[in-house]
Simulated scan of single mutants.
Amino acid sequence: MDQHGTQGERGRSAPDGQPTLWQVPDDSATGMPFAVALLALGSAHGLGHKGLHALVREHREQLGRLWDVPDSRLADELARVKVPTARKVADEISTHRADLLATARAKADELAQHNISIIGPSALPARLAALPGAPLWLFVEGDPSALYEGPHVAVVGTRDVTPDGVRATEAAVRTLAAYPVTLVSGLANGVDAVAHRAALRDGVRNVAFLGHGIDIIFPAETADIRARIVRTGGAVASEYLPGEYYRKAQFVQRNRLQAGLADLVVAAEGRRTGGTAHTVRFAATYRRPVIGFTWPGAGDLADLIGTEPTGRLIDIFTTAGRRTLDALCRSAADSYGHTTFGLSLVERQLGREAELRALPPEDLVRLRQFLDDLLGQEDGGHAR
């Protein structure tokens, strides 16, 4: 096991049979799981996002109790919570109550079969729950522990990534890959896809936030990345109901979750008028450190980052720039109490090479000499 652990098994159970953080018990009064109550209400014609959010804010994990309210009182209850068009929505629920619940139970079973959990408002990761306008639930495919176990570093950027942007993104991921860090991005084409692929290559666990329902694959080119994220112990998360298609405003809202979960946001490439600028502004609002990359032709997103109080600019293609990012990633991992080792990637590669090659003793002697020389250089540098 390397320092990232056996990622497919992390966080799946708790000691002494206790539920994991994201497992919320059914409401004792109704026995109806939060997931079923949420899905049923989400399918009620006319309720809409505003009404559904109002009900969840009011009832939280006890949302199932709403389904025990008699038809004669349902409109008054919806009006009390300030659900728009309460009478019309109450009539809809009363008329189709059995069908809504049956469909919701079938959908909840289908999601569970596809390794999708539903996290209620009381069990959300603390960093997300504390946000202004925090999500009230999350649909999560894969291992939800990836959302809870920090640190998280968001690597984000434009869909129109340039060759230098690809290099910059890969350099950022290779830098953070030395430490027990979880990468956060948005599973879009461009920088997001490059970041996820590089993280998977380097053994880094991934979290991807979606701007649409959890059961929708978009863009189609990222389907393989998504499957690998889940297969390697990561998580794909969405606050949108199953079947909700993507809209521009939803991707903006998705960006706030990337910034909110992150301990550090790295904006690899983009323009100050593009979508990544929203992530930068959210990060500044939440007082998350933001790193921007500079190189000739990198775009003007760095100009925006340079004006933010939490912003910092580096040239990722220089030794000094890489070392700056390395120090930030290592510090983030240290702050969570992790054991950090800056040469962990070298250690893993060396172990693989040693397995594959018939190494004579003189090769190992030469390696030892190389390490001794490095130590000598470090000692000399300290002495100066």
Rank of each mutant, 00 (worst) to 15 (best):
A108T: 12
R167N: 10
A171V: 04
E149C: 01
V161R: 05
V161T: 13
L138M: 08
H152P: 00
T95D: 15
V140D: 03
L128A: 06
Q113C: 12
A102S: 13
P121S: 08
E110M: 15
L101P: 15
R159V: 05
P151K: 00
P135G: 05
I116H: 08
D164R: 13
I118Y: 06
P121F: 08
S117P: 15
G165R: 10
P135H: 06
V83M: 03
V89Y: 04
K88N: 01
E141R: 07
P163S: 10
R87P: 11
W137C: 12
Y148Q: 05
S145N: 05
P132E: 01
A168D: 02
A86L: 00
A112I: 09
P135M: 07
L111W: 08
T175C: 11
A154S: 01
E141F: 15
S122G: 10
I93W: 07
T103E: 09
V173L: 06
K82T: 07
A108H: 08
R174Y: 08
S117L: 02
A106E: 15
L101A: 09
R97D: 14
T162E: 05
V140Y: 03
I119V: 12
R80V: 05
L101Y: 09
R167W: 15
T162I: 09
A98F: 04
V156I: 10
